[in-house]
Nucleic acid binder design. Structure first.
Lengths: 246, 246
DNA sequence: GCTAGTTATGAGGAATTCATAAAGAAAATC
DNA sequence: GATTTTCTTTATGAATTCCTCATAACTAGC
Protein backbone atom coordinates (compact mmCIF):
# COMPACT_ATOMS: atom_id res chain seq x y z
CA UNK A 1 0.00 0.00 0.00
CA UNK A 2 1.54 3.25 -1.10
CA UNK A 3 -0.27 5.87 0.90
CA UNK A 4 -0.39 9.36 -0.58
CA UNK A 5 1.71 11.84 1.39
CA UNK A 6 0.11 13.74 4.24
CA UNK A 7 -0.38 17.36 3.31
CA UNK A 8 -0.13 20.12 5.90
CA UNK A 9 -0.90 23.76 5.32
CA UNK A 10 1.06 26.29 7.39
CA UNK A 11 -0.54 29.70 7.81
CA UNK A 12 1.76 32.10 9.63
CA UNK A 13 3.09 35.51 8.77
CA UNK A 14 6.54 34.82 10.18
CA UNK A 15 8.73 33.20 7.53
CA UNK A 16 11.13 31.84 10.17
CA UNK A 17 8.46 29.76 11.81
CA UNK A 18 7.16 28.49 8.50
CA UNK A 19 10.65 27.47 7.52
CA UNK A 20 11.32 25.62 10.74
CA UNK A 21 8.07 23.72 10.50
CA UNK A 22 8.44 23.09 6.81
CA UNK A 23 11.89 21.53 7.01
CA UNK A 24 11.03 19.27 9.93
CA UNK A 25 7.72 18.20 8.48
CA UNK A 26 9.26 17.50 5.11
CA UNK A 27 11.98 15.42 6.70
CA UNK A 28 9.29 13.34 8.34
CA UNK A 29 7.58 12.73 5.04
CA UNK A 30 4.87 15.38 5.19
CA UNK A 31 4.10 17.54 2.23
CA UNK A 32 3.66 21.21 3.11
CA UNK A 33 2.13 24.30 1.63
CA UNK A 34 2.42 27.78 3.07
CA UNK A 35 0.48 30.98 3.32
CA UNK A 36 1.48 34.20 5.04
CA UNK A 37 -2.04 35.55 5.47
CA UNK A 38 -5.46 34.19 6.22
CA UNK A 39 -6.98 35.06 2.86
CA UNK A 40 -4.21 33.23 1.09
CA UNK A 41 -4.71 30.18 3.25
CA UNK A 42 -8.43 30.14 2.58
CA UNK A 43 -7.80 30.28 -1.13
CA UNK A 44 -5.46 27.31 -0.90
CA UNK A 45 -7.98 25.26 1.05
CA UNK A 46 -10.59 26.03 -1.57
CA UNK A 47 -8.41 24.76 -4.38
CA UNK A 48 -6.41 21.94 -2.82
CA UNK A 49 -6.78 19.10 -0.39
CA UNK A 50 -5.06 19.13 2.98
CA UNK A 51 -4.94 16.71 5.86
CA UNK A 52 -4.30 19.38 8.48
CA UNK A 53 -3.83 23.12 8.94
CA UNK A 54 -1.51 24.91 11.34
CA UNK A 55 -2.84 28.40 11.88
CA UNK A 56 -1.28 31.28 13.77
CA UNK A 57 -3.72 33.25 15.88
CA UNK A 58 -1.99 36.57 15.55
CA UNK A 59 -1.64 37.68 11.99
CA UNK A 60 -2.09 40.82 9.95
CA UNK A 61 -5.03 40.97 7.61
CA UNK A 62 -8.17 39.11 8.62
CA UNK A 63 -6.40 37.50 11.57
CA UNK A 64 -6.24 33.94 12.75
CA UNK A 65 -9.55 33.69 14.53
CA UNK A 66 -11.61 34.88 11.61
CA UNK A 67 -9.63 32.64 9.33
CA UNK A 68 -10.43 29.74 11.61
CA UNK A 69 -14.14 30.38 11.44
CA UNK A 70 -14.13 30.62 7.67
CA UNK A 71 -11.93 27.57 7.29
CA UNK A 72 -14.31 25.64 9.49
CA UNK A 73 -17.24 26.69 7.35
CA UNK A 74 -15.35 25.58 4.27
CA UNK A 75 -14.15 22.26 5.61
CA UNK A 76 -16.08 21.02 8.61
CA UNK A 77 -13.86 18.03 9.30
CA UNK A 78 -10.42 19.37 8.48
CA UNK A 79 -8.09 19.26 11.50
CA UNK A 80 -7.06 22.80 12.42
CA UNK A 81 -4.42 23.48 15.05
CA UNK A 82 -3.93 26.99 16.37
CA UNK A 83 -0.60 28.51 17.28
CA UNK A 84 -1.00 30.80 20.27
CA UNK A 85 1.37 32.55 22.59
CA UNK A 86 1.97 31.26 26.09
CA UNK A 87 -0.32 33.38 28.20
CA UNK A 88 -3.03 34.17 25.70
CA UNK A 89 -5.45 31.89 27.50
CA UNK A 90 -8.46 33.63 26.06
CA UNK A 91 -7.23 32.97 22.55
CA UNK A 92 -6.95 29.29 23.27
CA UNK A 93 -10.45 29.09 24.65
CA UNK A 94 -11.90 31.16 21.85
CA UNK A 95 -10.18 29.04 19.23
CA UNK A 96 -11.34 25.78 20.75
CA UNK A 97 -14.88 27.07 21.08
CA UNK A 98 -14.85 28.16 17.46
CA UNK A 99 -13.96 24.67 16.37
CA UNK A 100 -10.19 24.40 16.46
CA UNK A 101 -8.99 20.87 17.11
CA UNK A 102 -6.13 21.78 19.38
CA UNK A 103 -3.84 24.61 20.32
CA UNK A 104 -0.08 24.76 20.49
CA UNK A 105 1.59 27.43 22.58
CA UNK A 106 4.61 29.29 21.26
CA UNK A 107 7.38 28.72 21.81
CA UNK A 108 6.74 25.11 21.01
CA UNK A 109 8.88 22.11 20.46
CA UNK A 110 8.70 20.85 16.91
CA UNK A 111 8.43 17.39 18.32
CA UNK A 112 5.31 18.20 20.27
CA UNK A 113 3.89 20.03 17.32
CA UNK A 114 4.32 17.04 15.02
CA UNK A 115 2.82 14.72 17.59
CA UNK A 116 -0.24 16.94 17.88
CA UNK A 117 -0.63 17.12 14.11
CA UNK A 118 -0.42 13.37 13.81
CA UNK A 119 -2.92 12.82 16.54
CA UNK A 120 -5.37 15.31 15.07
CA UNK A 121 -5.12 13.66 11.68
CA UNK A 122 -5.57 10.24 13.17
CA UNK A 123 -8.73 11.36 14.90
CA UNK A 124 -10.11 12.94 11.74
CA UNK A 125 -9.47 9.83 9.70
CA UNK A 126 -10.97 7.47 12.20
CA UNK A 127 -14.22 6.43 10.58
CA UNK A 128 -17.34 7.63 12.22
CA UNK A 129 -17.84 5.95 15.50
CA UNK A 130 -20.96 3.85 15.52
CA UNK A 131 -22.85 5.20 18.43
CA UNK A 132 -22.88 2.06 20.49
CA UNK A 133 -19.31 0.85 20.24
CA UNK A 134 -17.38 1.10 23.47
CA UNK A 135 -14.69 3.71 23.85
CA UNK A 136 -11.60 2.08 25.31
CA UNK A 137 -8.69 4.14 26.56
CA UNK A 138 -6.15 2.49 28.78
CA UNK A 139 -7.97 0.53 31.43
CA UNK A 140 -11.13 2.58 31.09
CA UNK A 141 -14.00 1.43 28.96
CA UNK A 142 -17.18 3.38 28.41
CA UNK A 143 -20.12 1.88 26.51
CA UNK A 144 -22.51 4.62 25.40
CA UNK A 145 -25.34 2.27 24.52
CA UNK A 146 -25.31 0.78 27.98
CA UNK A 147 -24.32 3.88 29.83
CA UNK A 148 -21.78 1.74 31.62
CA UNK A 149 -18.15 2.28 32.59
CA UNK A 150 -15.55 -0.26 33.65
CA UNK A 151 -11.96 -0.05 34.77
CA UNK A 152 -9.94 -3.19 34.05
CA UNK A 153 -13.23 -4.96 33.60
CA UNK A 154 -14.59 -3.93 37.00
CA UNK A 155 -17.80 -1.95 36.73
CA UNK A 156 -17.66 1.58 38.10
CA UNK A 157 -20.80 3.22 39.32
CA UNK A 158 -21.12 6.76 38.06
CA UNK A 159 -23.90 9.23 38.72
CA UNK A 160 -25.66 10.86 35.81
CA UNK A 161 -23.55 13.98 35.63
CA UNK A 162 -20.34 12.11 36.27
CA UNK A 163 -21.12 9.83 33.38
CA UNK A 164 -22.06 12.61 31.03
CA UNK A 165 -18.87 14.50 31.74
CA UNK A 166 -16.72 11.44 31.25
CA UNK A 167 -18.56 10.54 28.07
CA UNK A 168 -17.86 13.87 26.44
CA UNK A 169 -14.24 13.91 27.52
CA UNK A 170 -13.66 10.40 26.21
CA UNK A 171 -15.41 11.21 22.95
CA UNK A 172 -12.81 13.93 22.54
CA UNK A 173 -9.91 12.09 24.07
CA UNK A 174 -6.62 13.78 23.42
CA UNK A 175 -8.20 17.16 22.87
CA UNK A 176 -8.55 20.00 25.26
CA UNK A 177 -12.22 20.47 26.08
CA UNK A 178 -13.10 23.93 27.30
CA UNK A 179 -15.11 24.43 30.45
CA UNK A 180 -17.78 26.09 28.36
CA UNK A 181 -18.26 23.15 26.05
CA UNK A 182 -18.40 20.66 28.87
CA UNK A 183 -20.89 22.74 30.78
CA UNK A 184 -23.04 23.26 27.70
CA UNK A 185 -22.97 19.54 27.01
CA UNK A 186 -24.01 18.50 30.48
CA UNK A 187 -25.97 21.39 31.96
CA UNK A 188 -26.94 23.52 28.99
CA UNK A 189 -25.55 26.59 27.29
CA UNK A 190 -26.57 29.03 30.02
CA UNK A 191 -24.31 27.33 32.55
CA UNK A 192 -21.12 28.17 30.68
CA UNK A 193 -19.78 30.14 33.64
CA UNK A 194 -20.31 27.62 36.39
CA UNK A 195 -16.82 26.21 36.50
CA UNK A 196 -17.28 25.27 40.14
CA UNK A 197 -19.73 22.57 39.13
CA UNK A 198 -17.06 20.97 37.01
CA UNK A 199 -14.45 21.06 39.73
CA UNK A 200 -16.67 19.12 42.08
CA UNK A 201 -17.54 16.49 39.54
CA UNK A 202 -14.07 16.11 38.09
CA UNK A 203 -12.95 15.47 41.61
CA UNK A 204 -15.47 12.70 42.07
CA UNK A 205 -14.55 11.21 38.73
CA UNK A 206 -10.87 11.19 39.60
CA UNK A 207 -11.67 9.47 42.86
CA UNK A 208 -13.48 6.75 41.00
CA UNK A 209 -11.24 6.38 37.97
CA UNK A 210 -7.69 7.29 38.87
CA UNK A 211 -5.33 5.14 40.87
CA UNK A 212 -3.92 8.27 42.47
CA UNK A 213 -6.48 11.06 42.19
CA UNK A 214 -3.90 13.66 43.15
CA UNK A 215 -1.74 12.66 40.18
CA UNK A 216 -4.25 11.93 37.47
CA UNK A 217 -3.22 9.98 34.39
CA UNK A 218 -6.53 10.04 32.61
CA UNK A 219 -8.37 13.20 33.57
CA UNK A 220 -5.86 15.95 32.98
CA UNK A 221 -6.24 19.65 33.61
CA UNK A 222 -5.51 22.20 30.91
CA UNK A 223 -5.03 25.18 33.14
CA UNK A 224 -7.15 28.21 32.21
CA UNK A 225 -8.74 26.25 29.38
CA UNK A 226 -10.49 23.12 30.52
CA UNK A 227 -9.96 19.42 30.93
CA UNK A 228 -8.60 16.73 28.69
CA UNK A 229 -8.90 12.98 28.73
CA UNK A 230 -5.50 11.61 27.86
CA UNK A 231 -5.38 10.12 24.40
CA UNK A 232 -2.86 7.40 24.89
CA UNK A 233 -0.94 6.39 27.93
CA UNK A 234 2.76 5.96 27.43
CA UNK A 235 2.60 3.22 30.00
CA UNK A 236 0.38 1.22 27.69
CA UNK A 237 2.16 2.00 24.46
CA UNK A 238 4.91 -0.41 23.58
CA UNK A 239 7.93 1.84 23.36
CA UNK A 240 9.95 2.20 20.20
CA UNK A 241 7.39 2.21 17.44
CA UNK A 242 7.90 5.85 16.71
CA UNK A 243 10.92 7.15 14.88
CA UNK A 244 13.13 9.50 16.88
CA UNK A 245 12.79 13.18 16.11
CA UNK A 246 15.57 15.71 15.81
CA UNK B 1 -16.08 1.97 4.36
CA UNK B 2 -16.79 5.48 5.50
CA UNK B 3 -20.51 5.94 5.91
CA UNK B 4 -21.91 9.14 4.48
CA UNK B 5 -22.20 11.78 7.17
CA UNK B 6 -25.49 12.38 8.92
CA UNK B 7 -26.94 15.71 7.88
CA UNK B 8 -28.85 17.84 10.34
CA UNK B 9 -30.69 21.05 9.55
CA UNK B 10 -30.91 23.65 12.32
CA UNK B 11 -33.75 26.15 12.07
CA UNK B 12 -33.56 28.75 14.81
CA UNK B 13 -33.45 32.50 14.73
CA UNK B 14 -30.91 32.75 17.55
CA UNK B 15 -27.39 32.59 16.14
CA UNK B 16 -25.91 31.66 19.52
CA UNK B 17 -27.95 28.49 19.75
CA UNK B 18 -27.18 27.55 16.17
CA UNK B 19 -23.50 28.06 16.82
CA UNK B 20 -23.39 25.94 19.96
CA UNK B 21 -25.21 23.12 18.24
CA UNK B 22 -23.25 23.43 15.05
CA UNK B 23 -19.81 23.16 16.61
CA UNK B 24 -20.70 20.24 18.83
CA UNK B 25 -22.54 18.36 16.11
CA UNK B 26 -19.70 18.89 13.68
CA UNK B 27 -17.21 17.62 16.20
CA UNK B 28 -19.28 14.51 16.62
CA UNK B 29 -19.22 13.88 12.89
CA UNK B 30 -22.55 15.36 11.86
CA UNK B 31 -22.85 17.70 8.94
CA UNK B 32 -25.03 20.73 9.58
CA UNK B 33 -26.91 23.31 7.63
CA UNK B 34 -28.63 26.33 9.12
CA UNK B 35 -31.58 28.56 8.55
CA UNK B 36 -32.71 31.51 10.61
CA UNK B 37 -36.30 31.46 9.43
CA UNK B 38 -38.87 28.90 8.47
CA UNK B 39 -39.07 29.86 4.82
CA UNK B 40 -35.35 29.46 4.47
CA UNK B 41 -35.45 26.05 6.09
CA UNK B 42 -38.21 24.87 3.80
CA UNK B 43 -36.21 25.93 0.79
CA UNK B 44 -33.21 23.95 2.02
CA UNK B 45 -35.28 20.83 2.57
CA UNK B 46 -36.64 21.15 -0.96
CA UNK B 47 -33.19 21.28 -2.48
CA UNK B 48 -31.09 19.06 -0.21
CA UNK B 49 -31.27 15.84 1.72
CA UNK B 50 -31.28 15.78 5.50
CA UNK B 51 -31.43 13.05 8.06
CA UNK B 52 -33.05 15.21 10.73
CA UNK B 53 -34.32 18.71 11.41
CA UNK B 54 -34.14 20.73 14.62
CA UNK B 55 -36.84 23.37 14.57
CA UNK B 56 -37.47 26.17 17.02
CA UNK B 57 -41.14 26.70 17.80
CA UNK B 58 -40.89 30.42 18.41
CA UNK B 59 -39.56 32.25 15.42
CA UNK B 60 -40.31 35.39 13.48
CA UNK B 61 -41.81 34.99 10.05
CA UNK B 62 -44.07 32.03 9.47
CA UNK B 63 -43.18 30.55 12.88
CA UNK B 64 -42.16 27.09 13.90
CA UNK B 65 -45.50 25.36 13.96
CA UNK B 66 -46.43 26.36 10.44
CA UNK B 67 -42.99 25.44 9.27
CA UNK B 68 -43.44 22.05 10.86
CA UNK B 69 -46.67 21.39 9.01
CA UNK B 70 -45.18 22.36 5.69
CA UNK B 71 -42.03 20.39 6.33
CA UNK B 72 -44.10 17.36 7.13
CA UNK B 73 -46.01 17.77 3.89
CA UNK B 74 -42.73 18.00 2.02
CA UNK B 75 -40.99 15.08 3.71
CA UNK B 76 -43.34 12.66 5.44
CA UNK B 77 -40.66 10.51 7.01
CA UNK B 78 -38.03 13.07 7.90
CA UNK B 79 -37.36 13.15 11.65
CA UNK B 80 -38.28 16.60 12.98
CA UNK B 81 -37.46 17.67 16.53
CA UNK B 82 -39.02 20.78 18.01
CA UNK B 83 -37.33 23.16 20.42
CA UNK B 84 -39.86 24.53 22.89
CA UNK B 85 -39.67 26.50 26.10
CA UNK B 86 -40.10 24.82 29.45
CA UNK B 87 -43.73 25.29 30.33
CA UNK B 88 -45.36 25.58 26.94
CA UNK B 89 -47.25 22.32 27.33
CA UNK B 90 -49.66 23.28 24.59
CA UNK B 91 -46.83 23.75 22.15
CA UNK B 92 -45.51 20.30 22.87
CA UNK B 93 -48.80 18.55 22.36
CA UNK B 94 -49.58 20.59 19.30
CA UNK B 95 -46.18 19.85 17.84
CA UNK B 96 -46.47 16.12 18.38
CA UNK B 97 -49.94 16.11 16.87
CA UNK B 98 -48.73 18.08 13.90
CA UNK B 99 -46.19 15.37 13.21
CA UNK B 100 -43.09 16.27 15.15
CA UNK B 101 -41.09 13.23 16.16
CA UNK B 102 -39.95 14.66 19.44
CA UNK B 103 -39.62 17.89 21.34
CA UNK B 104 -36.79 19.29 23.41
CA UNK B 105 -37.45 21.88 26.07
CA UNK B 106 -35.18 24.87 26.46
CA UNK B 107 -32.91 25.19 28.24
CA UNK B 108 -31.49 21.92 27.07
CA UNK B 109 -28.11 20.34 27.41
CA UNK B 110 -26.33 19.70 24.16
CA UNK B 111 -25.92 16.12 25.25
CA UNK B 112 -29.64 15.60 25.52
CA UNK B 113 -30.18 17.23 22.19
CA UNK B 114 -27.69 15.01 20.40
CA UNK B 115 -29.11 11.92 22.04
CA UNK B 116 -32.60 12.83 20.87
CA UNK B 117 -31.44 13.49 17.33
CA UNK B 118 -29.71 10.14 17.18
CA UNK B 119 -32.63 8.29 18.58
CA UNK B 120 -35.06 9.94 16.17
CA UNK B 121 -32.88 9.05 13.21
CA UNK B 122 -32.50 5.51 14.40
CA UNK B 123 -36.25 5.16 14.78
CA UNK B 124 -36.79 6.45 11.28
CA UNK B 125 -34.26 4.09 9.78
CA UNK B 126 -35.12 0.96 11.71
CA UNK B 127 -38.10 -0.80 10.20
CA UNK B 128 -40.41 -2.50 12.65
CA UNK B 129 -38.77 -5.69 13.75
CA UNK B 130 -41.29 -8.20 15.07
CA UNK B 131 -39.17 -10.58 17.05
CA UNK B 132 -40.71 -13.78 18.18
CA UNK B 133 -37.84 -15.57 19.81
CA UNK B 134 -37.99 -15.72 23.59
CA UNK B 135 -35.71 -13.53 25.65
CA UNK B 136 -34.10 -15.42 28.49
CA UNK B 137 -32.18 -13.68 31.25
CA UNK B 138 -31.43 -15.52 34.44
CA UNK B 139 -34.58 -17.25 35.60
CA UNK B 140 -36.82 -14.92 33.63
CA UNK B 141 -38.13 -15.84 30.21
CA UNK B 142 -40.30 -13.60 28.07
CA UNK B 143 -41.89 -14.82 24.85
CA UNK B 144 -42.98 -11.85 22.73
CA UNK B 145 -45.22 -13.86 20.41
CA UNK B 146 -47.20 -15.33 23.26
CA UNK B 147 -46.92 -12.32 25.48
CA UNK B 148 -45.99 -14.74 28.24
CA UNK B 149 -43.47 -14.51 31.07
CA UNK B 150 -42.16 -17.26 33.28
CA UNK B 151 -39.77 -17.40 36.20
CA UNK B 152 -37.97 -20.72 36.60
CA UNK B 153 -40.64 -22.19 34.36
CA UNK B 154 -43.50 -20.96 36.52
CA UNK B 155 -45.84 -18.67 34.58
CA UNK B 156 -46.18 -15.15 35.91
CA UNK B 157 -49.28 -13.16 35.25
CA UNK B 158 -48.56 -9.63 34.10
CA UNK B 159 -50.98 -6.89 33.16
CA UNK B 160 -50.61 -5.23 29.77
CA UNK B 161 -48.56 -2.27 30.90
CA UNK B 162 -46.43 -4.38 33.19
CA UNK B 163 -45.70 -6.65 30.28
CA UNK B 164 -44.86 -3.84 27.90
CA UNK B 165 -42.48 -2.28 30.36
CA UNK B 166 -40.73 -5.57 31.04
CA UNK B 167 -40.58 -6.37 27.35
CA UNK B 168 -38.88 -3.12 26.51
CA UNK B 169 -36.43 -3.41 29.37
CA UNK B 170 -35.53 -6.98 28.48
CA UNK B 171 -35.12 -6.07 24.82
CA UNK B 172 -32.49 -3.63 26.00
CA UNK B 173 -31.06 -5.70 28.80
CA UNK B 174 -27.87 -4.32 30.24
CA UNK B 175 -28.60 -0.82 29.07
CA UNK B 176 -29.97 2.02 31.08
CA UNK B 177 -33.35 2.88 29.60
CA UNK B 178 -34.39 6.44 30.28
CA UNK B 179 -37.76 7.21 31.78
CA UNK B 180 -38.61 9.13 28.65
CA UNK B 181 -38.00 6.25 26.30
CA UNK B 182 -39.86 3.81 28.45
CA UNK B 183 -42.83 6.12 28.84
CA UNK B 184 -42.87 6.93 25.15
CA UNK B 185 -42.82 3.22 24.33
CA UNK B 186 -45.65 2.24 26.65
CA UNK B 187 -47.85 5.31 26.95
CA UNK B 188 -46.79 7.54 24.05
CA UNK B 189 -44.43 10.43 23.58
CA UNK B 190 -46.61 12.99 25.34
CA UNK B 191 -46.34 11.06 28.62
CA UNK B 192 -42.60 11.42 28.77
CA UNK B 193 -42.74 13.33 32.04
CA UNK B 194 -45.02 11.03 33.99
CA UNK B 195 -42.30 9.28 35.91
CA UNK B 196 -44.72 8.42 38.69
CA UNK B 197 -46.48 5.95 36.43
CA UNK B 198 -43.27 4.06 36.03
CA UNK B 199 -42.53 3.97 39.73
CA UNK B 200 -45.84 2.35 40.42
CA UNK B 201 -45.44 -0.26 37.75
CA UNK B 202 -41.82 -1.01 38.45
CA UNK B 203 -42.89 -1.68 41.99
CA UNK B 204 -45.51 -4.16 40.86
CA UNK B 205 -43.08 -5.82 38.51
CA UNK B 206 -40.52 -6.20 41.26
CA UNK B 207 -43.12 -7.75 43.51
CA UNK B 208 -43.86 -10.32 40.85
CA UNK B 209 -40.37 -10.97 39.55
CA UNK B 210 -37.83 -10.38 42.27
CA UNK B 211 -37.16 -12.71 45.17
CA UNK B 212 -36.57 -9.69 47.38
CA UNK B 213 -38.29 -6.68 45.84
CA UNK B 214 -36.42 -4.32 48.15
CA UNK B 215 -33.08 -5.58 46.82
CA UNK B 216 -33.76 -6.12 43.16
CA UNK B 217 -31.37 -8.18 41.07
CA UNK B 218 -33.14 -7.87 37.76
CA UNK B 219 -34.89 -4.53 37.66
CA UNK B 220 -32.22 -2.06 38.65
CA UNK B 221 -32.51 1.67 39.13
CA UNK B 222 -30.20 4.18 37.49
CA UNK B 223 -30.88 7.20 39.61
CA UNK B 224 -31.80 10.33 37.67
CA UNK B 225 -31.71 8.33 34.45
CA UNK B 226 -34.08 5.42 34.33
CA UNK B 227 -34.24 1.68 34.83
CA UNK B 228 -32.14 -1.17 33.61
CA UNK B 229 -32.71 -4.88 33.31
CA UNK B 230 -29.52 -6.56 34.39
CA UNK B 231 -27.77 -8.30 31.54
CA UNK B 232 -26.08 -11.07 33.42
CA UNK B 233 -26.44 -12.36 36.93
CA UNK B 234 -23.24 -13.35 38.61
CA UNK B 235 -25.25 -15.28 41.15
CA UNK B 236 -26.54 -17.67 38.52
CA UNK B 237 -23.29 -18.09 36.67
CA UNK B 238 -21.21 -20.84 38.16
CA UNK B 239 -17.97 -19.04 38.85
CA UNK B 240 -14.97 -19.90 36.72
CA UNK B 241 -16.24 -20.45 33.21
CA UNK B 242 -16.42 -17.10 31.55
CA UNK B 243 -18.09 -17.57 28.24
CA UNK B 244 -18.40 -14.33 26.37
CA UNK B 245 -21.94 -13.73 25.24
CA UNK B 246 -22.64 -12.98 21.59
C1' DG C 1 8.64 36.62 49.16
C1' DC C 2 4.05 38.58 48.27
C1' DT C 3 -0.31 38.96 45.73
C1' DA C 4 -3.95 37.64 42.61
C1' DG C 5 -6.03 34.28 40.04
C1' DT C 6 -6.85 29.50 39.35
C1' DT C 7 -7.46 24.81 40.76
C1' DA C 8 -8.03 21.04 44.29
C1' DT C 9 -10.17 19.34 48.38
C1' DG C 10 -13.57 18.40 51.90
C1' DA C 11 -17.84 18.33 53.94
C1' DG C 12 -22.66 19.55 54.86
C1' DG C 13 -27.13 20.88 53.47
C1' DA C 14 -30.64 21.67 49.64
C1' DA C 15 -33.03 19.73 46.20
C1' DT C 16 -34.43 16.13 43.58
C1' DT C 17 -35.66 11.60 43.00
C1' DC C 18 -36.74 7.04 44.89
C1' DA C 19 -39.62 3.29 47.04
C1' DT C 20 -43.70 2.44 49.21
C1' DA C 21 -48.50 2.56 50.27
C1' DA C 22 -53.06 3.32 49.53
C1' DA C 23 -57.21 5.05 47.55
C1' DG C 24 -59.98 6.78 43.70
C1' DA C 25 -61.03 6.32 38.51
C1' DA C 26 -61.43 3.61 34.54
C1' DA C 27 -61.78 -0.55 32.07
C1' DA C 28 -62.68 -5.24 31.50
C1' DT C 29 -65.21 -9.24 32.73
C1' DC C 30 -68.99 -11.74 33.98
C1' DG D 1 -75.22 -3.72 36.38
C1' DA D 2 -72.19 -5.60 39.68
C1' DT D 3 -67.65 -7.29 40.41
C1' DT D 4 -63.05 -7.76 39.53
C1' DT D 5 -59.02 -6.19 37.57
C1' DT D 6 -56.12 -2.68 35.91
C1' DC D 7 -54.66 1.94 35.69
C1' DT D 8 -53.91 6.64 37.51
C1' DT D 9 -53.22 9.81 41.13
C1' DT D 10 -51.57 11.51 45.43
C1' DA D 11 -48.94 11.41 49.86
C1' DT D 12 -45.10 10.01 52.80
C1' DG D 13 -40.40 9.23 54.47
C1' DA D 14 -35.96 7.59 52.85
C1' DA D 15 -32.13 7.75 49.82
C1' DT D 16 -29.26 9.69 46.54
C1' DT D 17 -27.49 13.18 43.90
C1' DC D 18 -26.33 17.70 43.27
C1' DC D 19 -24.84 22.18 44.59
C1' DT D 20 -22.67 25.51 47.69
C1' DC D 21 -19.21 27.23 50.28
C1' DA D 22 -15.00 27.49 53.00
C1' DT D 23 -10.27 26.40 52.98
C1' DA D 24 -5.88 24.73 51.20
C1' DA D 25 -2.59 24.14 47.39
C1' DC D 26 -0.78 25.67 43.45
C1' DT D 27 0.85 28.93 39.59
C1' DA D 28 2.27 33.01 37.49
C1' DG D 29 3.43 37.87 37.70
C1' DC D 30 5.32 41.60 40.50
Amino acid sequence: MNAPPTRVLLIDDEPAIRRALRTTLNELGFETAEASRGEEGLQLVRTQNFDAVLLDVKMPGIGGMKTLVRLRALAPRLPILMLTVQDAEDDKVEALEAGADDYITKPFSIRECVARIRSAIRRAQTPERPENTPIVIGEIELTPGKRAVTKSGEPIHLTRKEYEILHYLMLHAGRAVTYGKLLAWVWGAEFRQEVEYLRTFIRQLRKKIEDDPANPRYLLTDAYVGYRFTECLEAFMPAGDEEPLP
